[in-house]
Write a protein that binds this DNA or RNA. Sequence first.
RNA 1: GCGGGCGUAGCUCAACUGGUUAGAGCGCCUGGUUGUGGUCCAGGAGGUUGCGGGUUCAAGUCCCGUCGCUCGCCCCA
Length: 417
Amino acid sequence: MTKLQPVRGTRDIFGEDIRRFSYVTDAFRRIAGTYGFDEIITPIFEFTDVFKRTLGDTSDVVTKEMYSFEDRSGEMLTLRPEYTAGIARAYMSNGLAQQGVVRLFGYGPMFRYERPQKGRYRQFHQLDAEIIGAAEPMADIELLALAWQLLNDLGIAGDIKLHLNSLGDPESRSAYRAALVDYFSVHEQKLSEDSRVRLHKNPMRILDSKDHGDRTLLADAPRISDYLTTGAKDFFARVCDGVTALGIPFVHDEKLVRGLDYYTHTAFEFITDALGAQGTVLAGGRYDGLMEMMGGTSTPGVGWAAGIERLAMLIAEPDKPRPAIAMIPLGERAEQHALSLVQELRAAGYSTGMDYKGNMKRRLNRAAKSAARFALILGDDELENNVATIRNLDSGTQEEVALDQILAYFSATLTSS
RNA sequence: GCGGGCGUAGCUCAACUGGUUAGAGCGCCUGGUUGUGGUCCAGGAGGUUGCGGGUUCAAGUCCCGUCGCUCGCCCCA
């Protein structure tokens, strides 16, 4: 508590940062609405079990990155490290299965104890979209379309590539996994240290190793496409067809795997090379096995999450909002009048700032810096005549307007916003 | 968790090989007489040089530790 700095990996979001942040979340809310998604806010913490059961005991997220604690009544709780498990829990808690196919979106903070870096924080924020209750590839396609439109509307789709793969159904996956273990066990000595650990913990992760030696071995490694069942193959083909039909460019990336255990079939990542090692900007996939893992009835689902900070870094700087009016009262009498006048203007929807310090010069200066469109000057001279001076700060022209005509004046010259 | 780089006013940076009261620009505040801006001039506030030790006659400048940021690995959004 002695240090006046935020906790490692956390930060205050304000100024330009919050403008970027809000630009992203506003766009998301708008687009998700047009896709018929309903918003959901789930708690920031859950019983630890919610995450432990679903993410897999071997995942790094569970084994070393969760912020878990015991509360005063002895419950083991965890700050959510990801969104999907909480939504799945909410789906079951609230009996949403009764509503048929459910489309949900939301956004908020996540927590992971990792080594911070640019684009990677301990408290970070994600957008999230899920379709629960639909086993059809159409759901996967719709979610990819939503993601693609978001990236387009944010103006960053050009720098981002969609990598698409299929992890298959459980049969495909375990057959492939066995084949991988066979292959790499023969070459275990040649594997990097990290990958030797992966071989026993999560062999599919070897696929996206960046180690040179690993990569040469990977050239002859078994490919998942050869192990997909006909059902899984067909499912993936339909997803690819749909994405192609929508005109979304993508690459079939057989080395794409997901870190979390509950994924099946479709897996995808939208990747940019503009963010260094943290290039994945939006990622997700199908998780047909999740609900059962949590102890519910088997229910199919697809979803994705996107890093708000990462998106916010990529978009163009949003415009600063311009106040409509800067009120400048001169003297005590004027201040009294100004109070109610400002209240009226604000009630009418005009963003109005009031400056009451310093001389005229300083005040106009500040008004100009605030980027206000008009300065509304009210002094003794004006009060004598029941007028106010309205100065157009862009053009420098000004005129006197009767006090009871001010609202009318602005409604004629400004669109209320 | 592992390896590398960095850390001086709100911001961007300066201070020769360690040497007197750590500087500049921007920003902020005030003034240039009585009510007019985005110029100009003058003045001012703001730094225990991230923090803590050590070496030295002397450290922002060297050494160690620590905290934070950053790059790569790892992990992932």
